[in-house]
Computed example of a mutant assay.
Amino acid sequence: MNRVFGAVVLAVLLLVASTAAAIWWTARQDARPSSDAIVVLGSAQYNGVPSSIFAARLEHALSLWEDGVAPVVVTVGGKAAGDQFTEADAGRAYLEEAGIPGDSLLAVPEGVDTLESMRAVGAAYAERGWSTAVLVTDPWHAMRAERMAEDAGMEVTSSPTRQGPAVQTRTTQFRYILRETAAYLLYRATGESVAGAPGVG
């Protein structure tokens, strides 16, 4: 009995360790092939102004668009109770003010977490006959976002932002990796997302 218990514990520890290592590895990648669109995962906004985490993602998406990675930038994310603006609309306004023309922007104002947002983007892709995307989010969130996007029918790579609060210190990075490890394993086991804002949950 003790051997069986020990084997189970060891298997769980190996699964957690290998998942954390995969998240760390994915976070270090930067794939930017020519694609149908650049998809920016939403994060908090305050009265239409993107938070520092969201702004870092948007600035990276702007750079990718300027480099010709894709002709369209998709912003995604709904709004919390009491908010006047969705994250998608706040992101679109930010990028339009930064110089991207309106016909190169698509706001998908749906989703209270990453899973809902990716499903909404997948539906928008299907309507337009698109298939390929470069995802922009924080490094530690990239692997889970990729998996959810693929499950929503998209062909994706990720180009994580290297700026913003999520990557400032090693302590912050370690905390994000632990959280993402738990969130990724939960999704693979149940098909559900953790509660949180788009780009977090």
Rank of each mutant, 00 (worst) to 15 (best):
M1S: 13
M1A: 13
V9S: 09
L10K: 07
V12T: 12
L13I: 14
L13S: 15
L15R: 08
V16Q: 06
V16T: 07
S18T: 07
A20Y: 04
I23N: 06
I23C: 04
W25E: 14
Q29V: 11
Q29D: 10
D30E: 12
D30W: 13
A31P: 09
R32G: 01
S34L: 07
S34P: 07
D36E: 11
V40P: 00
S43N: 15
Q45D: 03
N47V: 13
P50E: 03
F54G: 03
F54C: 01
A55W: 03
A55F: 05
W65I: 02
D67F: 08
G68M: 05
G68V: 06
V69L: 00
V74G: 00
V74C: 04
G77Y: 00
A80R: 10
T86P: 08
T86Y: 02
T86N: 02
R92N: 05
A98Y: 08
P101H: 03
G102T: 13
L106V: 05
A107K: 13
V108S: 03
V108Q: 00
P109I: 05
E110P: 07
G111V: 02
D113M: 05
L115Y: 04
G122Q: 01
G122N: 09
E127F: 10
V134W: 01
L135Q: 06
L135T: 10
H141Q: 10
A145E: 02
A145Q: 03
A145F: 06
A149R: 00
T157Q: 07
S158T: 14
Q163R: 15
A166K: 14
T169Y: 04
R170T: 14
T172E: 14
Q173N: 09
R175H: 13
I177Q: 05
R179H: 06
A183P: 09
A183Q: 04
Y184Q: 06
L186W: 15
R188Q: 11
E192K: 14
V194P: 08
A195W: 12
A197V: 12
G199F: 01
V200D: 15
